[in-house]
Write a protein that binds this DNA or RNA. Sequence first.
DNA 1: GTCTATACATAGATAGAC
DNA 2: GTCTATCTATGTATAGAC
Lengths: 226, 226
Amino acid sequence: MTFEDFKRMVSVSKEEICRKILEGNRDKIKVKKEKKVVENLVKIFDATLEISNREGFSNMTVRNLSKKAGLSMGALYSYFSNKDELLEMIQAQGREISRRVLETQIGPIDDPREKLRRAIQSHLYLSEAMQPWFYFSYIEARNLSKTEQKKAIASEIDSETVFLEIIEEGIRRGFYAVKDITLVAPVLKAMLQDWYLKRWKYKQRKITIDQYADFVVDFIEQYLSK
Amino acid sequence: MTFEDFKRMVSVSKEEICRKILEGNRDKIKVKKEKKVVENLVKIFDATLEISNREGFSNMTVRNLSKKAGLSMGALYSYFSNKDELLEMIQAQGREISRRVLETQIGPIDDPREKLRRAIQSHLYLSEAMQPWFYFSYIEARNLSKTEQKKAIASEIDSETVFLEIIEEGIRRGFYAVKDITLVAPVLKAMLQDWYLKRWKYKQRKITIDQYADFVVDFIEQYLSK
DNA sequence: GTCTATACATAGATAGAC
DNA sequence: GTCTATCTATGTATAGAC
């Protein structure tokens, strides 16, 4: 599967995402016309991600957001009741999509080696297709409330566990060498995150997503091979 | 060399660091008594790092800082002329110390394999000894002015180049396999950074710094080995 | 549903007494 | 060298007209 195939398969269009956000937040959003809501949510999240990823969420004023999104301040507050709620909505949706996509991508695969490759690839592809969301989620997690921070941490641990279990299965089935793998999943996560955290670096050096994916897979497999 | 040896060798005490900051900023700091300055700078940076690493630099108010540092707001402004300058001072000092320590630690070593190991170890040890500084520098780099951001990027590239050149030398001298190493240094950096960015994770799992260092060295060497 | 106008709080920064 | 008091700008959030 290429990156283009991936984008077609998983529905990560802005409208799609905003429709899901609406579903999960009917109580918080005051406006009732579904079409209108989705339309405006796209504007709001686009603007929020753009401003925040440039100058930080706490430096983004609602006035700035209003201007960039093309909605008045009053109108904005019909879609969220305060700034923190806006932050939470984006974070929650990011987690939800990650979990779902990863699950559907690797669920059916049996061979642990193939499964590991696809898990790495899917993770990178998804973070590429939704780069602003992933960057935002990582960087702004610190601005969440204590309870929401716990959810972010749980999500990180969760996706790490997915990798760990694939590797353990690979060892059990004799595909990988028997060795201490405590730190493999954590550093693998770090490598995957670096792709969207340091986009500037890889762009500048003209590294494609497939080159990066191949490298990470190769790197990990060398370590796990007997 | 153990972590304890390292801390004794390189002078990374708060006073030491603040004395260096004073040297580089005599023009910006209005107070003249050297002893007093160092004493207060320690309080100011301690408080800044503590508050910022918890809730972000932009969410830290000068009032909060004043309270935590035990100095009035008026007094604070004798040590920096505005909040951004405070940010820059910390960042500049972090870069300077990193560069210097890394250089002195690996400078004299000849064998590329030994050099690579020491570079990884020193980098981790330093980031451990100065964890709040490193965390702050990474996270708050985005709040710097465009010119200062360029310096931060240059510093990242610079330390990456150190690793790259050691590895190239290792290949030339026949210690490592001849293969494409374009992405080795970037992901190595990502792994080193993860240690101070996700302190909570490694602490919780009781991973020691030496365990982590050994793993990263092993991981990289497996990949580079013929 | 969306706007404008505004209330109210809190931010960064400084002046002038001590 | 340090403090308190205060200025001014800007922040979030809402009320009420359209």
